[in-house]
């Protein structure tokens, strides 16, 4: 960029602009470290999402189980007329245990109960017990 009218100024301007850009681009080490941290934070590390989903699902199931148990028990517990208090408590406890067992079974189940028939239709042939 030199020669004809305005060429010398343009060349000088270009040189100064380049120096300015290079000077502005010189940042301290903290900037580069922060930038690298920002990049790492935005990467989809393989498996991370799957674990996040599993954790979220587990947390949801646990919360739901606790909510169900707490709702079933109620603030003071049902009192059945004519039934001794100890028996009523034992009954409630049995109900809670039964509910917890059901929740555990539901959590352990690979396919939700409502979809078992469909799953059997699709995947029944691959079931080792079906062989």
């Amino acid at each position: 960029m030199s020669g004809r009218d305005g060429g010398a100024e343009a060349t000088r301007g270009l040189r100064d602009w380049v120096d300015e850009v290079r000077g502005t681009a010189l940042r301290d080490e903290a900037f580069w470290t922060r930038q690298r941290a920002g990049i790492r934070g935005r990467l989809d590390v393989p498996g991370t999402r799957r674990w996040a989903w599993a954790l979220a699902l587990g947390a949801s199931v646990a919360t739901a189980a606790v909510a169900i148990v707490m709702t079933g028990r109620g603030p003071s517990g049902p009192v059945t007329p004519g039934v001794p208090a100890t028996v009523a408590v034992e009954t409630a406890s049995d109900d809670d245990d039964q509910l917890l067992v059901e929740v555990e079974i539901a959590v352990m189940r690979e396919v939700p109960l409502a979809y078992e028939a469909v799953d059997f239709q699709w995947n029944g042939a691959r079931d080792p017990e079906a062989d």
């Binding site: 100024e9 343009a10 000088r12 301007g13 270009l14 100064d16 602009w17 120096d19 300015e20």
Partner: peptide, 13 residues
Amino acid sequence: LARRDAEAVGRAV
């Protein structure tokens, strides 16, 4: 003058 030229280059870019 130099700054003005450098700014003009930056604007043009």
